[in-house]
Amino acid sequence: MIPPTYYLVVSIILFVLGIIGFFIKKDLITQFLSVEVMLNAANLAFITFAHSAGSLDGQIIVFFVITVAAAEAAIGLAIILLVYRKHKSIKTEDIHLMKG
């Protein structure tokens, strides 16, 4: 029997790695991948809590997160494609249309 704390520690490490990845990577696609890592870290935490609380609600939430992530990926990737078509680049530094 592994204590839930172990899983949570793994979850935290994954989450922080996702953040670091988001800031280190230079292109939209890998940044997006990092965000997915963070989502997974959260999912792991949810499952852990569900397990230790002995309820299925946590799993249901993870199920929803996965569906939303799928939708988000579809839209997000479509946007990335559009950006690429317009700027011929997916480097985040090149995209600063919102500069004040």
Binding site: F22, F23, Q31, T92, E93, I95, H96, L97, M98, K99, G100
Partner: peptide, 13 residues
């Protein structure tokens, strides 16, 4: 203040 608005996602993040 507008110089804070760099338009770069990373800064906002």
């Amino acid at each position: 203040l507008s110089s804070l608005q760099t338009g770069l996602i990373k800064d906002y993040a």
